[in-house]
Amino acid sequence: MPTRSSALRSVFRINALFIYFFLYAPILVLLIFSFNDSRYTVSWQGFSLRWYGALFQNSILWERCLNSLIIGLVATLIATVLGTSAALLLERHRFPGRGAYMAAVYLPIIMPDIILAISLSLFYGLVHLPRGFATIIIGHVVLTLPFVTIVVRARLRGFDRQLEEAAADLGANEWATFRRVTLPLIAPGILGGALLAFTLSLDDFVLTFFTKGVGVDTLPVLIYSMQRKFGVTPEVNAISSLLLLNSTLFVLLSLRLQKHR
């Protein structure tokens, strides 16, 4: 029955088209209207870069940007070191309590952000930890650590252990083997994981919102409070577009690295 199966095939195709439209339309709309030369954002008044120009002169925005970057970089660094060691541990060692260890490392992935955020907030309150960069960074590390672990573990699984034996056979001690053979070979995985962690940290809103102190804001928190205060404005569209572009770039780079053989 060629007609029926080809009809079915077009149903599938239309469904796919509809979903991709559904996924990308809002993003494209946002992007397009960030170039709209109008304060009343829905009607198109012509192409303009004025909102991007305004962003460049907005010193608060630059400061938030810098905060986001600092937090992102520090959190990524810590999460990458800890996540990589967790990956090595889980791939290479069997030990009592391995399951519990794995649960503790991985659980933050499936925990709703809000629970993670308020448990940390509560913890900071009870131990009287002053809120600031450190409290945000800690949260971001807990959140991104499992992602690094997953990506590095995947890389380690494709790793030929005999290469390490070969290095030992050629006179390399454990540290030299790790530095000259293991590390260079899993480096794409580590870098891929780090990029993912950085993206997640830059994008995070909920954790930051509940663990930040007064005065230390990040870019997503700024976007949130701007849309809260002024509603939908072209400036917010413009920052959002930039942030979106940025994370798309990082994610593509990360995926590319994870595939690298």
């Binding site: 030929d160 070969a166 290095a167 056979d169 006179g171 083997t177």
Partner: peptide
């Protein structure tokens, strides 16, 4: 292994 005066040619070659 790294302190034995012995070297190995692996079946898979294990070239870096």
């Amino acid at each position: 292994p790294h302190r034995r005066n012995v070297n190995t040619v692996f079946q898979s070659y294990a070239l870096f």
